[in-house]
């Protein structure tokens, strides 16, 4: 099973990035092999629709589970369409989030925000 987590830096001890679509990197972590890779989020520089493109990247990486602080409605639509399970990340390091997830301590993300839709760069 593969997990994705939005990351501020290429470092497992750094904090989870609060944004999904505009996160600089995604950590892709394989629970079985314990293998982790940081993938650059090329959607972060998009003029608009960053969440949609980021979701496409996650799906293309064959990720089954996303741990994220928040998520917009368009990205959620893409991820749910691809049967990705979405959990609410805690305000802590990436490593702590993986541990919490493994210990079954994270809850499913239920609040999907309406999206910023370009309002970030007006």
């Amino acid at each position: 099973m593969k997990i994705a987590i939005p990351a501020e830096n290429r470092n497992i001890d750094s904090n989870v990035c609060a944004s999904f679509g505009r996160a600089p990197y995604f950590l892709i972590y394989d629970i079985e092999t314990k293998e982790s890779t940081f993938k650059e989020n090329t959607a972060a520089v998009s003029t608009g629709g960053a969440g949609i493109k980021a979701a496409q990247i996650i799906v293309d990486e064959k990720v089954n589970t996303l741990l994220t602080v928040q998520l917009g409605e368009n990205a959620a639509k893409v991820l749910k369409g691809a049967d990705v399970r979405i959990y609410k990340a805690i305000d802590a390091s990436i490593k702590e989030n993986i541990e919490s997830f493994a210990a079954d301590k994270l809850v499913l993300l239920t609040q999907i925000h309406a999206g910023y839709h370009g309002r970030g760069n007006r």
């Binding site: 959607a43 998009s46 003029t47 608009g48 629709g49 960053a50 949609i52 493109k53 979701a55 496409q56 799906v59 368009n74 639509k77 893409v78 369409g81 691809a82």
Partner: peptide, 20 residues
Amino acid sequence: FCKFNALVYIKDKLQIFEEI
């Protein structure tokens, strides 16, 4: 091609976000 990311390809299907 789409600079606004209005299209995705998920589960062998093209999905279009008309509002984007």
